[in-house]
Design a binder for these strands. Structure first.
Lengths: 189, 189
DNA sequence: TACATTTTGTGACGATCGTCACAGGTAGAA
DNA sequence: TTCTACCTGTGACGATCGTCACAAAATGTA
């Protein structure tokens, strides 16, 4: 819980009273490895603040899982399209390790936000932060090659490489596992 | 202005009074073809509601422009990362035709939002909508090949193909102009 | 320890892509 | 109309990628 409070204070102004009023919308949930936080076809009703462990978001295309994001400690995980619109999610989110998350319930969060402007601002800032991250990675795919994408991840998100397998990373970078292996080999002269 | 009002009403509940209170944050701006709405290195202070014409967002990498988005009539154009965080924008936005936009000034919008909850909700919904669109296209790049990306655009966004040149589209799809030409040729028979 | 499972590296080969070069087509301006 | 600038198609060629196959290495479990 302290990690969430630190996260919130880094993001926006938040009083003790707002914190108390936020509590009804929060619950702590544990997930085993390979347990789903969100399943494809379900409507995303939650924001997951990752306290311990990590998870990944993926789309299943022709029986193959294509990773679209990793969420590590102190990240917010969700499917923004489904959460925002109430449509079914096209992606799944699954725990890659035993995972502890603080879950924001959408309905209760919106209720609390109506009463408390600081909670309203928190919600808005969470979406903004999520959108900015999404923009970062969307741009990455738009303008860089797989080789350059790897270099970018190595520079800006080295924690990812410490925890994610080559297979999972290759799927995220949008190349075959073998190709990632060769990209690595090619550059280390 | 009626087009903006229709856009707002489709997005959220909005009273006559909120509309009047929103006015100080709005201004209509005309752009000539190839005029910048936002230049790389500047901080994005505006949301642009596209009333007439269209524009594109691009990054310049090694002297080559890589398109990352097109914004047509009734779209909101902005750089979400710069607008949200106040950082310099890494992307530029430029008019592809003579263009008319209704500009939301960030400072005045935030002022109006503080006074009027419906304007606050409008701002939040704009960001949400923008994030959802971004998610759509980010996913497109993550999980599909250039060929499949083209098929997706043809099915879901055919208006784009009516207005954007092959050269601009190829840059957006992330392939060479010649490759797009061959993808088209390959599938037709 | 021994065994099973998962992960990673690598070779071979065909498919696709980016680049360079050039030609034809189209649209707008003088 | 003529000129110019831009857009599109296509051939050639080398580079890179995806796929299949198999072996080695690492990891987890009995």
């Amino acid at each position: 819980m302290e990690s969430l409070l630190r996260f919130i204070h880094a993001l926006t102004i938040f009083s003790e009273e707002s914190w108390i009023r936020l509590q009804p919308a929060l619950s702590t949930q544990e997930f085993k490895k390979n347990e789903f936080l969100l399943k494809e076809g379900a409507v995303c009703q939650s924001l997951f603040f990752i306290e311990k462990g990590y998870c990944r978001s993926f789309h299943e295309i022709d029986g193959i899982e294509k990773n679209t994001a990793f969420y590590l400690e102190n990240d917010i995980a969700t499917n923004i399209r489904s959460f925002g619109s109430g449509e079914k999610s096209a992606a799944s989110i699954i725990a890659c390790e035993p995972l502890t998350a603080i879950v924001f319930d959408k309905v209760l969060l919106f209720e609390a936000a109506r009463q408390t402007p600081e909670i309203e601002a928190l919600g808005r800032n969470c979406i903004r932060l999520f959108a900015a991250k999404q923009d970062e990675f969307a741009t990455l795919f738009n303008i860089y090659s797989a080789k350059d994408r790897l270099a970018y991840i190595e520079e800006k998100h080295p924690q990812l490489l410490q925890r994610v397998s080559q297979t999972q990373l290759a799927s995220f970078l949008g190349v075959a596992r073998e190709t990632l292996s060769r990209i690595r080999k090619r550059r280390v002269p």
